[in-house]
Amino acid sequence: MKKLFIILLAVTAFSCQEKGTESANEANTESTREIKDYLSQYKPYPMDFDATSYNETDRTILKKLVEASEYLDTIYWLQTSKYGLHLRDSLAAIKDKNQSTKDLLTLVNRNGGPFELLNGYKTFIGNQTYYPGDELYPMA
């Protein structure tokens, strides 16, 4: 777990400090395999929607509903893992993401936080351990 925290800090710093990624990659072979194992549980599946056959009003309706859903999404993250939200945004903000950054971002998004839901809430990134009640109750 600690190793992955290092990789995150390193890749977060990547934009301003070039050599960060190298040391992170060396330090993280083992954890990278863990990430790959978790990712291999999920089959990427394209789900495309073509809205072009709808008239303008309907498209506006759908766009607004999608936009409303984005706000709702933020509420979900605030309910679930503020730290996870921070991790997600830090990973997403990295320019020219390498594969392990992309993989981490995929996993953080798929789990709504730093804990692997299909594997008993095991931490896969960062230094927190799962706490029941998420952000709905006081942490301590």
């Binding site: 291999s40 549980q41 999920y42 089959k43 599946y45 789900m47 495309d48 929607f49 809205a51």
Partner: peptide, 16 residues
């Protein structure tokens, strides 16, 4: 046991 257990939807919407 080595096969994926759930899907990872990859979404895109074509608006125009």
């Amino acid at each position: 046991e080595d096969l994926p257990i759930d899907v990872l939807p990859v979404r895109s919407i074509k608006w125009e």
